[in-house]
Amino acid sequence: MTESIEISELTKKFEKITAVDGVSLDVRRGEVFGFLGPNAAGKSTTVKIAATLLEPTKGTIQVEGHDVQNEPVSVRAITGLLPEDGANTHYDRLSAYKNLEYFGHLYDVPAEKLHDRIERLLEFLELKDRRDESPATFSTGLKQKLSIARSMIHDPSVVFLDEPTSSLDPIMSKRVREFIDTQAEGGKQTFFLCTHLLSEVEALCDRVGFISRGVLVEVGRPKDLRRKFWTLRTFEVKLTDPNLQKSVDIISSTGLVQSVSIEGKRVIFEVEDAETKNPQIIRALMEAGHQVVEVREHVPDLEAVYLKVIGGN
C-alpha cells in the first residue's frame, strides 16, 4: 500500500449546511499535500474528520489503512494534529516542557525516548530557554511553535497541520518549512497541510488540492496545474530600441502570437508552442533591426492558478 490517506466520497453536513461534499482524494505515503481553499471551504472539517474528531455524514477516510470510524484509536495513535488556532490550545497551568511531556505520555512515547525527543523539538523550534515557563507568557508565535512540537511529539506517520506558519515570523516559518521538508524527505512521514499561504504550498507541497464550498475542484502537482490552466505561455522581451510600439507591430504581423502588449519597458506576448514559434518571432525582430537583449518566460505562480480555479468556481 502506497496510499497514506484515502478519502472516499466524504460528506459532512452540519444541520442544513454541507461543509464537505463528496470529496475523494488519495495522499501518498511520504507526500507533502497542500489543501487550499477560501475560508469555510471545508478544509478544517476534512482534517477534523481525518483526525477522528468529527464523524462523517457519508463516505470514508482511511489513514495508513485504518478506518477513522471503525479504528479511531489506531488512527489517533499514528497521526499528529496541529489544529486551527493551534497557538491557543495549551495548558497554561503547565510549563512548556510539561505540556509536551503530558502529551508524550498520552501518545505512549516510551519514557526513555520522551525526554530526548522533547529536548530535540524544543531545541529545533528555539523554545529551550522558555521550557519551564507557562505558555500563557508566550507570544502567539512561540505558542504556535509549541503546538507544532506537540503535534510531532510521538513521531507520527501522518501529520495534519492546519495553518502551521500563520503566526510565525519569516525566519521561523522558513525553519518550520525546512523541518517539514526534512521529515518528509525519506518518505517517513506524510504531511497534510491546510494553508492560505500559497508561497508555502509552492515551496513545500508535492501535490495540492483546491477545495471550494466543500467540493474538491482540482488536485495535482503545482507544475501540472499550471500547465493545465495555462496552455498559453507568456514571454517578455527586452529590446534596445526605445520605440516599443514598432516592435509590437512586428511581433503582431508575424501572426504567431495570441496577444502582444507593452508593459513598462518590455514587450509581452502570449504564444502557443513556444519552442517552434519563439525563434521565428525573435528572427523577425532582429531582421527589422531590433536588438533583443533578453527573453524571459513569465511562469504563473500557484496563486495565479488558485485564483483561476477558485475564482472560476
Binding site: L53, V73, R76, T79, N88, H90, Y91, D92, F103, L106
Partner: peptide
C-alpha cells in the same frame, strides 16, 4: 473554554 479539548481528543485515549 481554554481550547485544550481538541488536542486532547486527538490523542489515542478511548
Amino acid at each position: 473554554e481554554r481550547h485544550t479539548l481538541v488536542p486532547l481528543l486527538a490523542t489515542p485515549l478511548t
